[in-house]
């Protein structure tokens, strides 16, 4: 650490120009090189890809340069190039992963509908998806 006054505090300056995985509050995963941060943890990501995981498969979509508003970040961590080379996952094409993602979402929705129906029959009114729109 090059700043003794910051010893022990979490900060991002050490991560500059490293390849990072960033998870956003909406669940999306971005992987890119961190070029800049500020006091709000706003990030600049360069050569970014969006990685979509479904089960043991994943697909990468090239996205370019991101300015991410800090409050939307859940976590970020450095990507180990060696470990990345032998992931226990298989890469598939963008179309395939988008297809798989859609199918996964549909099955989740079906499940949710069944659950809501079952609960309703037992006198419980579950309000689905009300939590989702106010992500402020």
């Amino acid at each position: 650490m090059n700043r003794p006054e910051l010893e022990g505090t979490a900060h991002l300056l050490d991560e500059l120009d490293k390849k990072l995985m960033v998870v956003l509050r909406d669940g999306r995963t971005l992987i890119g090189y961190l070029r800049s941060v500020d006091q709000f943890a706003n990030l600049v990501l360069h050569r970014t890809i969006e990685r979509i995981h479904v089960g043991k498969e994943y697909g990468d979509i090239p996205r370019g340069v991101f300015i991410v508003r800090g409050e939307n970040v859940v976590l970020l961590g450095e990507i180990d190039a060696q470990k990345e080379a032998n992931l226990p996952l298989t890469q598939v094409s963008v179309d395939d992963i988008l297809d798989a993602q859609r199918r996964e979402q549909e099955s989740k929705q079906d499940q949710q509908r069944l659950l809501t129906k079952a609960l309703k029959e037992r006198g419980l009114n579950l309000m689905p998806d009300l939590t989702h729109d106010d992500m402020f």
């Binding site: 370019g64 340069v65 991101f66 991410v68």
Partner: peptide, 15 residues
């Protein structure tokens, strides 16, 4: 309004 933004994507040439 800035507070409602999640992220911005800008062209490569800007960097």
């Amino acid at each position: 309004r800035g507070s409602t933004i999640k992220y911005l994507r800008i062209p490569d040439e800007v960097i």
